[in-house]
Design a protein around this nucleic acid. Structure first.
Length: 508
DNA sequence: AAAAAAC
């Protein structure tokens, strides 16, 4: 269905090299000789002095040419996560950070997509570091952590689009996401960025009842890029409708969750094994804002066991993961009812002036309860959760993204990845807890929830509503874990306190 | 008595 070929005008002679090699003997010079690109001359006019300086300094350690002392006085200072990412490369492949998209040997069609459609000017920090690692042969696996709203999607979408051979009509890139909404959102980015490339794509999510066609009656997927959710992808693979033999690049969005035992571990491993079985040398990219210690260990192990041994990685310390541009608050509420009062009298009243709001709740049930009481009080809110029909989910997302609705109540369905720049306020109606041990907070989900505000360095405010000792215990554990300060609102009844809070957050 | 994703 989703197919960008309507605008096809592919003239690029992009010859992707999928020959995989475990021995990382290729130096940076091999990168150019491996491929024939008509625009190579232009891409060569990089800062020669910086390159040679870096190369000599870093060859032995084999780490990335990102030098903290150097980065301070370059031109990307407004980057919110500047200098907080630590990158480690394996082997002796040299990478030079990409200050401009021109540094990446991208096809003219892709560059046009970046500048004209996406309206990007230059790579963000994570893009600057990770894109050379993704796009330079030999194509190594990458485990990449970066802050919420820092542009991870662009990294892997660009990776997929540039690794695909436009002349080969077979699936070559696969992206797996934890929710249908995220798969759809990523597809939208792919279509936009790849608008001029003629590269074809298809969404692998369950079809709604109206357009349902039994899997056995469907033709095999011929689209070059497939983005979807694990269940449907596995279903297609099992039915032999999704061939893996030409797969060049496999992307896990929200990789920590996709590979966690409590997440989609089984499904993900099945997909990986299908690829390992069918193809040679598929590059694997794992992206997330969070990689908890235990999942990090597992993730690196699984990549090493199933795919090529050496891989590049970039991680952020958990203490440096909270976004500086987003101010976090906690509100002591005497009981459940006062939580609703705080939301309707304080947060929603003021929130109207500052942008859109997402209210997170723990269960589907409390989502509908909160929805009903806010609607009863005369507020216009919409609610999304997994029990809704897909068409309703789509409609609610569409309305919110178009700005037709201001306030959205959600379960953790939207905790990860949902990108809407106008969201300035996030409310935790209740705090996220671990399913296995409900007395423990889910730090990762907390970070993802608050990351729905403050996209790309924008200002934002978070209100955590607490009403008993348990809530306060969870909150202080979260504060300790991220070493981030959560300011207490003096009185839940004081309109002035909330107004000042928003002013301090830079929103009023 | 959880969210999500699959029949």
């Amino acid at each position: 269905m989703a197919d960008s070929s309507s605008t096809a005008s592919s003239t690029a002679a992009f010859v992707a090299d999928s020959s995989s090699t475990t021995s990382s003997t290729a130096a940076s010079t091999t990168a150019k000789s491996r491929e024939t690109r008509s625009w190579a001359d232009e891409a060569d006019e990089i800062d020669q002095t910086e390159q040679s300086e870096n190369a000599s300094a870093e060859t032995e350690i084999g780490s990335l040419q990102i030098d903290e002392s150097k980065r301070v006085n370059n031109s990307t200072l407004d980057d919110p996560e500047d200098s907080r990412i630590e990158a480690v490369t394996s082997g002796d492949t040299l990478y030079k950070s990409a200050k401009r998209f021109e540094d990446l040997n991208l096809s003219p069609e892709l560059l046009k997509g970046l500048y004209v459609e996406m309206k990007f000017e230059r790579p963000s920090k994570i893009q600057e570091i990770s894109l050379p690692m993704i796009l330079t042969p030999p194509y190594k696996n990458l485990i990449a952590q970066a802050h919420n709203g820092s542009g991870k999607t662009t990294c892997f979408v660009l990776g997929m689009l540039s690794r695909v051979d436009p002349k080969l009509r077979a699936p070559q890139a696969l992206c797996i996401c934890p929710t249908r909404e995220l798969a759809i959102q990523n597809m939208e980015v792919l279509l936009k960025m790849g608008k001029f490339t003629g590269i074809t794509s298809e969404l692998a999510i369950p079809a709604d009842a109206a357009n349902y066609i039994p899997i056995s009656k469907r033709p095999p997927v011929s689209a070059q890029v497939v983005i979807g959710t694990p269940g449907t992808i596995n279903k297609w693979v099992t039915a032999r409708k999704l061939g893996m033999s030409c797969m060049k690049i496999l992307v896990f969005d929200e990789a920590d969750h996709m590979l966690a035992e409590s997440g989609f571990q089984d499904d993900s491993i099945r997909i990986m094994k299908a690829i390992v079985k069918a193809s040679v040398g598929c590059q694997v990219l794992l992206f997330s804002a969070t990689f908890g210690e235990s999942v990090k260990a597992f993730v690196t192990k699984i990549v090493r066991d199933l795919f090529v041994k050496d891989y590049n990685q970039m991680f952020v310390k958990k203490e440096e993961l909270s976004l500086d541009s987003v101010k976090q608050y906690k509100v002591q509420c005497p009981d459940e009812l006062s939580k609703v009062m705080v939301i309707k009298d304080k947060i929603l009243e003021l929130g109207q002036k500052v942008g859109q709001t997402i209210i997170f709740v723990r269960t589907r049930n409390s989502a509908s309860m909160l929805h009903t009481s806010l609607v009863d009080y005369g507020y216009e809110v919409t609610t999304i959760q997994g029990a809704l029909k897909q068409e309703d989910r789509d409609k609610i997302i569409k309305e919110f993204k178009e700005g037709l609705t201001q306030v959205l109540i959600s379960t953790d369905l939207l905790a990860r990845g949902f990108d809407q720049s106008q969201v300035n306020l996030v409310v935790n109606y209740d705090l996220p807890v671990r399913h296995e041990s409900p007395s423990e907070p889910d730090h990762e989900v907390y970070l993802h929830r608050i990351g729905r505000a403050g996209r790309f360095g924008r200002k934002g405010a978070i209100f955590n509503l607490l009403c008993d000792d348990r809530d306060n215990m969870l909150m202080s554990k979260i504060e300790n874990h991220f070493n981030s300060q959560v300011t207490e609102i003096a009185s839940w009844k004081s309109e002035e306190d909330f107004e000042n809070a928003l002013k301090k957050a830079g929103l009023l």
